[in-house]
Design a protein around this nucleic acid. Structure first.
Ligand SMILES: [Mn+2]
Ligand SMILES: [Mn+2]
Ligand SMILES: [Zn+2]
Ligand SMILES: [Zn+2]
Lengths: 143, 143
DNA sequence: CAGCAATTGAAAGTGATTTTCACTATACAG
DNA sequence: CTGTATAGTGAAAATCACTTTCAATTGCTG
């Protein structure tokens, strides 16, 4: 997925007249090779290590571009910070979030998705997106 | 539910040594008799009408107490504002949110809830809470 | 290389929420 | 009823997570 997403972003950038900059490239590389759910702050701190002068604004702006291009998705787990996660073409998944250690497990359940559609239909809604998050204690923390 | 929740909060307040104040009572009455999903700002503005000197801080603090006591639940629909909704003893529901007009429809689906449990179990998680929100266009806005 | 638009980072600005603090109100003992 | 200890209040300042502004820099195109 990494190379595919790199290509998707390059194409997006090209047709939008975005320039290729040292910072943007560094952020893209870091994002694509990092943990799947990173907060801006985590990304910023890691970037600083290799690129001490990079600014918060640049990181924020760049991650928005990633989301716009379709290679990233913004997620909110209710801790006040925005996270970004990788998105593969046409992929979708939901999350289990450990309230103890913060671990995030991804899952996808076709049946649930279908039932969501059914519920929406009952109420005349046309679903655009949805959010399903299960919060609890992960296997590790339960031991 | 209104009287029941009033009683629940009174008991919570008593055992926590919270005092009964004019403001707290006003906020409780307004909250319990209002729309089921109110933002702090909406509550604040309505309160101001009857109680011109009430401060934002008091409203924020009081709603947190309501949540702590179990009569209210904090909800985040991604518009940057925290909302609070009524909670009845042992009740639970999820939401359909119209991205056009902001309408909120509540629903509950036993089958989905059971599948969530099954998913959690597969991953060794013990669910504490969950959030299921379906965003889309409501029946009215589709016409 | 010149010309110009896009990009960057520091710093100021936002908007929601929280904290601080001096003042006030409540509850409970006497 | 008081007097007191304590909790609560509201205005204003502080925080937090972003977002915008802007002057300086950089990438591209020709
Ligand atoms: Mn994920
Ligand atoms: Mn609701
Ligand atoms: Zn855990
Ligand atoms: Zn609508």
């Amino acid at each position: 997925m990494k190379q595919a997403n790199k290509k998707i972003f390059r194409e997006f950038a090209a047709q939008k007249g975005l320039k290729s900059t040292r910072q943007r490239d560094a952020i893209l590389d870091l994002f694509l090779s990092s943990d799947r759910h990173m907060s801006i702050e985590e990304l910023y701190l890691k970037l600083r290590a290799k690129y001490p002068t990079i600014g918060y604004a640049t990181v924020y702006r760049t991650l928005k571009l990633f989301a716009e291009s379709g290679i990233a998705r913004e997620i909110h787990f209710g801790d006040g910070q925005t996270r970004y996660e990788h998105v593969g073409r046409g992929e979708h998944h939901d999350h289990l979030v450990c309230t103890r250690c913060g671990a995030i497990v991804e899952f996808s359940n076709e049946t649930i998705e279908n039932l969501q559609e059914a519920v929406a239909e009952e109420h005349g809604f046309l679903i655009e997106t949805h959010k399903l998050e299960l919060y609890g204690i992960c296997a590790r923390c339960r031991k």
